[in-house]
Design a protein around this nucleic acid. Structure first.
Lengths: 244, 244
DNA sequence: TCAATTATTGACTAAGAGTCAAAGTATGTC
DNA sequence: GACATACTTTGACTCTTAGTCAATAATTGA
C-alpha cells in the first residue's frame, strides 16, 4: 500500500506539472499556442500519457480555472476572518478581490476562455461540478456576510431581493471590470486611467446606495483596508503595492 | 462607372451574406463548428473566395462583434434622444442596454470570444480600430449624459473621478452580468433567479450612491421607462416583454 | 522466474486552416 | 467579332494539430 500511494503521489505530481507547463503558455502566448505535442515535449512524456491525465485540451483549461478559483476562495476565506461589523468584513472581501485580480490578472482571461461554449461543452461533468462547487463556496462566503448585515439590520434589501442577488451585483462589477482591464487595450484611450481605483469607488457607492451601514462617509474604511492588509495579507500587499 | 458600383454592391452583399451565415453557426453551434469550408459551401462559392473577403476566421468573429456593436450604438442613440433631466436620460440608456442584451444575448458571447488574445491578435488593425471607434462612440454618448449631469449639478463626482470612469462602472456591471447570464448556467443554482431585474436594481442603487438627482425615491423612473419604451422602442419592447 | 496487470509510447487518422497556380470571366480596344 | 489585358474564382494541396490505439515496456505479485 506504500507503493500504491507513492504511485498515486507521482501521478498527482505529474498532473500538477502539466498545469504548471500549460499556464504560462496560455498566459503569455495564448490559447492557440497551447498544444498537446508541446506539453508532452516539455513534460518529457509522450502525448498519450498527457491524454491519460486529461481527455482533451479543454479539460486542461478548466483545470487551470479551478486552480485559480481555489486561490481566490482561499484569499476570500482569509478576508472573511476579519472580525468586525458586516460592512467592514465586506470591505475586507473587496480588498481580497482586488489583490487577487492584481496578482492573477490572467485568471480572468482563463475564466473567459473556459466559458466559451465550444470549450465548456467539451469538458467533463465532473470538473464542471468542481468549478461550480468552487463558485458556490466563494459566493456563499460573501453572501454570508450580507446575511450577517441583514440580521444586524445594517442593511435592508429591497423587497424581493435575496442576499445572493446583491452578491451577483458585486461579482458582475468586478468580473466585468477586471476582464476588460485584462483584455481591452482601448480603455486608456477612453479615459479610464485607473481602473482598479474606479472599481473600488463604484463598489463603495453601490453599497452606500443600498444604505449599508455604516456608510462610507460615516466610517474610515481606509483604516479597515489598512488593518486587513497588515493582518491578513502582508505578503500579497507588499507584492502589489510596492510601487504605490 | 455604373458597372463598377454594381460590382461593389455585389461584393458588399456577399460579405454580408458571409456574416449572416456565420452568426447563427457561432451562436447555436459554437466557435468550433464555424469553419471556412462550411461557410464556403453554404455561400455556394469556393473557400478561396471567402478568403478574399476575410483573411482569416478570426476576422469574421471581429466583423460580427462590430456589427452587433453598431446595433447597440444605434439603440443607445435612440435612447439618448429622450428629452429630460440627466438621470432620466441615463435611465433611457439603461433601458436600451437591457433591451439590447435581451435581444442579442449572443453579443456577449461573441464579445468574449473576440477578446481572447489568441483570436484578437490574428485580426487586422483596421478592423480593431473599427471596434474601438464603435466603443468610443457608444461610451461618449453615455459620458455625454454624465457631463450634462455634472453641468446641471445633478451629480457631483468624487474628487479625481472623470465622467468616463463612472461610465466604466456601469459598463463593467452590465458587461459582467450579461456575459455571466449568457454563459454561466450555474447562476440559478446559486440563487440568482432574475438577473436582469437584479442588474436594474444595482444600477439604480449605484447611481443613488453617487447622489445623482433626482434619486430613485424622489422620482418615478418606472414612468420614464414606460415613456421611453413607448416613444422610442415600441417594437423592441413588444418583442422582449410580450410574456412579462 | 514468469504470467498478469498496468503504464507508456508514437505512428497513424482525421479535420480543418490557409495557399496559390491554373482556369475562368469581364472589360476595353481595334 | 477577335483579341489582349486585368481581375475573379477555384479547389487540390500543404501544414498543423487534436485525438486514437495497437504495440511495447515496466511493474507487480505469486
Amino acid at each position: 500500500m506504500v507503493n500504491e500511494s507513492r504511485k498515486e503521489r507521482e501521478y498527482l505530481y505529474r498532473e500538477q506539472r502539466i498545469l504548471d507547463i500549460a499556464r504560462p503558455v496560455i498566459v503569455q502566448e495564448g490559447y492557440h499556442a497551447l498544444n498537446m505535442n508541446r506539453i508532452a515535449e516539455q513534460l518529457e512524456y509522450s502525448k498519450g500519457t498527457v491524454y491519460n491525465h486529461f481527455p482533451c485540451k479543454e479539460e486542461i483549461i478548466l483545470a487551470l480555472a479551478i486552480q485559480t478559483l481555489e486561490q481566490r476562495t482561499e484569499m476570500f476565506q482569509r478576508a472573511a476572518r476579519f472580525v468586525g461589523r458586516s460592512r467592514e468584513r465586506m470591505q475586507a472581501i473587496g480588498l481580497a478581490c482586488e489583490l487577487f485580480a492584481r496578482m492573477f490578472p490572467e485568471h480572468f482571461v482563463v475564466e473567459q476562455l473556459v466559458r466559451i461554449p465550444s470549450i465548456w461543452d467539451k469538458t467533463s461533468a465532473t470538473r464542471q461540478q468542481q468549478l461550480y462547487r468552487g463558485e458556490t463556496c466563494c459566493l456563499s462566503l460573501v453572501s454570508g456576510i450580507v446575511h450577517q448585515a441583514v440580521g444586524a439590520k445594517d442593511i435592508s434589501l429591497p423587497p424581493g431581493m435575496v442576499p445572493e442577488e446583491l452578491v451577483f451585483g458585486l461579482w458582475s462589477m468586478t468580473f466585468g471590470a477586471y476582464s476588460m482591464l485584462a483584455t481591452n487595450s482601448n480603455l486608456p484611450a477612453l479615459g479610464i486611467v485607473n481602473g482598479y481605483e474606479a472599481v473600488r469607488s463604484h463598489l463603495r457607492h453601490m453599497l452606500d446606495g443600498y444604505g449599508w451601514r455604516p456608510l462610507d462617509a460615516e466610517h474610515d474604511y481606509d483604516e479597515v483596508v489598512h488593518q486587513v492588509m497588515t493582518q491578513h495579507f502582508p505578503t500579497e500587499a507588499a507584492q502589489i503595492f510596492q510601487n504605490a
